[in-house]
Design a protein around this nucleic acid. Sequence first.
DNA 1: AATCAATAGTTCAGTTGTGAATTATTCATA
DNA 2: TATGAATAATTCACAACTGAACTATTGATT
Lengths: 181, 181
Amino acid sequence: MNATDKIADSFSDAEARIARTRRRLPKFSVQHTTLARLSRHINKLSQERANLALRPFALNMVSYNTLMMLYGTEGHRLSPSQLADASGEKRTNITRICDELCAKGLVERVAGVDDRRSVVVSLSSSGLALIEQLQPVMTQLLGDLYGDFTIAELQELQRLLRKQVARLDRSLRAASSEPAT
Amino acid sequence: MNATDKIADSFSDAEARIARTRRRLPKFSVQHTTLARLSRHINKLSQERANLALRPFALNMVSYNTLMMLYGTEGHRLSPSQLADASGEKRTNITRICDELCAKGLVERVAGVDDRRSVVVSLSSSGLALIEQLQPVMTQLLGDLYGDFTIAELQELQRLLRKQVARLDRSLRAASSEPAT
DNA sequence: AATCAATAGTTCAGTTGTGAATTATTCATA
DNA sequence: TATGAATAATTCACAACTGAACTATTGATT
């Protein structure tokens, strides 16, 4: 493990420890652990990379993603709960993110009409303009990140990831309906 | 989109917005965006699921992972920098995590011998015992999360994820050697 | 119609993670 | 040998996220 290897692969330090762990814990699942670690590692790196591209626009992956969920909705409006579901962020985090986007003039909040408990969050014209300005930037970034894959590989990766989501949904449902341990 | 669909797939709200976005931004890459969002979604759910399993042991995924990197190292000891590399956490976060693990008596810190700037972090006997106690729990959890995949699928997923890491390494290297935008 | 359960969005307190700055130490260079 | 550059670990201030609690509102049940 020298500097050349380190440059070649940001995952190799983790990998060495996983391999060695197997020698001591015979039932340790190297394959599963490796996948879990790779997945997490990719997310850290991806977020870091995306945030670099978004920083000049005073956004990060989470705020961009939130804007895009509004953009992809009929009328560019959603309740905070719907926004949470679409973006994958927790509701309380959506409150914080919307506070920030509101302060930047990128979204607007109004009281819900049909349900007085609710709020409606919508894209402002500045928000809309920013998204369209960002489009080439993000298209290029994603092209960069996924550029080594063939079409077939992209499709296979998507199939596998969807399978994983379905399993996770089930696992979380099962785990949260269990009695407390 | 009704309650039944929601139960079936935690990703469908995001998916609908991605699809609709394409209609408005013709160059928008649905495939790449979907993959990026799936990947992030899986990580959120996985972390949530793992933390549920680890909570009874007063640990979470990050602290467990840190312990495991020590466990998988000859002599169960690493400098904080090496630990950061192995775990994928930033150095300052390693300081915080080690503070916590030290307070729990799971790791010990001593001054480095060869280099007076450095520290050596090692697993305590309690830390070692806890890892071995956790082994069946984590093996079962990972078996649960990856249980729907065939061996061939696991291997293909690993191949694809490694390809992605290699690309990300290159992309981040390129991005950080560019002049500031 | 009254009562209770569930819900929307937010607040609040705490947890988790990060980058810049710092100080002592080590390494590289002339 | 002296000087300057690079580095290890940490501190510090801040960013980002979370779960419990809360209040007003809506939905379900009797």
